[in-house]
Design a protein around this nucleic acid. Structure first.
Lengths: 239, 239
DNA sequence: GGATTGAGAGAGCAGTGCTCTCATAACCTT
DNA sequence: AAGGTTATGAGAGCACTGCTCTCTCAATCC
């Protein structure tokens, strides 16, 4: 039997049909997610839209949580693509520009896809725990990109020196692991600054998307975010 | 009939019993919320714990959303109390200390009550819209406290001057409204800095509570947050 | 004491996730 | 091409959800 793991699988028709059906389910799930939100995502409703009885869907998707995981990966991928596409046009040495592009790309995607952003960065769906081994890869694309920009700027000598604040020794090992994992050169203090900037971007986006600012507190959210990004670029140490 | 609005209502026994029952329902809801999370909050389960059939609960609580609103207000109140209690012991002119106390109080409450923190600052529960007129009051206690600290520091001349970044004119009206509403004196640029610090604190707390940092990326989350607060105090302009 | 009213029970509707069995059609092998 | 295998979908069913309705009864008020 030749069912050793050959990378070029011949794909029987049945396998192809299966893949197509799963893609349809994910697509429908994506629409339901965008329309009604994560917790309202119903396998039965997806089945109805697929023109099939609910139990049939379980042939393709193990459970509702499994579908959520698929949609999670799907959304992480799109966000990562959006960020990459926004950063790429800027010259490699325009660190500030790339940083600002990243931040605005995150925000724009979040505003465009609030339900999917909520799935990624909102409160965890109750009873659902994302399987780390399948989601950490796509889930770390944005922070990897951000840290890459910081690191390049540091290597180019274009990142302001760390301020007085000393990084607590208990964090040294963690930072060293991050540095190793992402192949970075930035010292601890700058890495900590990067982490703060990272959380701040998502804090600002989440406040806006989740409506924490209040109904009509800010009539010009674009300009508010722009200003935040300006300040964060300064915090990060760009030029 | 003397049912004009007299502030000292005599409280008939029935009214008292009703209030007691509602308090019991909220208490049970709080426990369910803490244990199983917001979306898993079930009126039927609360009814079971109350030793009563589900329809009976509807005599006291209009709907599941109504119960969520009660729990929302409840949680906002507790968070506000925690923050106030943490800030209060510091001398009125130790602005940096009060600021740090506020930040740590938020984080500690969030870590202690992740489900309730999620209800307040996580993705909105699907299909549920918090009634602004009942939640904005308790919901703004923390930011009011923060802005109060900033404002006091500013009035005392203990807040660093704003950096070069110019605040976009489109934001002027919004900032003016906030200033008026909270009776503040801080100029736009410092208010914007305050907003950034505010979102950054909650961004960092949310990342930690919602597990966005990754499973065991940081072995010393306390020290990481401490460092973030140090940096944010600098950003805010304390001393 | 009698009328009123509020509380709880119970049935019921429409929806959910998920499991099971059964028939059938598509597929692969000989 | 025939026959065995298997993936697929249907349907029933269980336990749960929110919520509505009606009915009964006891507590309260006058």
């Amino acid at each position: 039997m030749a069912d050793v793991q050959d990378p070029q699988k011949p794909k029987t028709p049945r396998e192809l049909a299966r893949i197509r059906t799963i893609a349809q389910i994910v697509q429908l799930g994506r629409e339901h997610l965008a329309l009604h939100g994560a917790a309202a995502l119903s396998l039965r409703a997806v089945a109805r839209d697929l023109g099939v009885v609910s139990s049939a869907v379980y042939r393709y998707v193990e459970s509702r949580d499994e579908l959520l995981t698929l949609l999670l990966i799907d959304a992480y991928g799109e966000l990562g693509d959006a960020v990459d596409a926004a950063v790429e046009p800027f010259p490699a040495d325009d660190f500030r520009g790339r940083f600002a592009a990243l931040a605005h790309a995150v925000r724009e995607w979040a505003v465009r896809e609030p339900s999917r952003y909520s799935l990624l960065f909102g409160s965890p769906v109750p009873g659902y725990q994302a399987p780390a081994e399948r989601t950490t890869g796509p889930g770390t694309r944005v922070v990897t990109c951000l840290m890459g920009i910081l690191d390049s700027a540091y290597r180019a000598g274009r990142l302001a020196a760390p301020d007085a604040a000393v990084v607590h020794p208990a964090l040294a090992a963690d930072f060293e692991a991050i540095r190793g994992g992402l192949d970075l050169a930035v010292p601890d203090a700058l890495l900590a600054r990067g982490a703060l900037v990272w959380t701040s971007i998502f804090g600002a986006v989440s406040f806006e998307v989740f409506g924490q600012y209040g109904a009509d507190t800010f009539s010009a959210p674009d300009e508010l975010f722009q200003h935040h990004v300006d300040m964060l670029a300064r915090v990060a140490g760009f030029d």
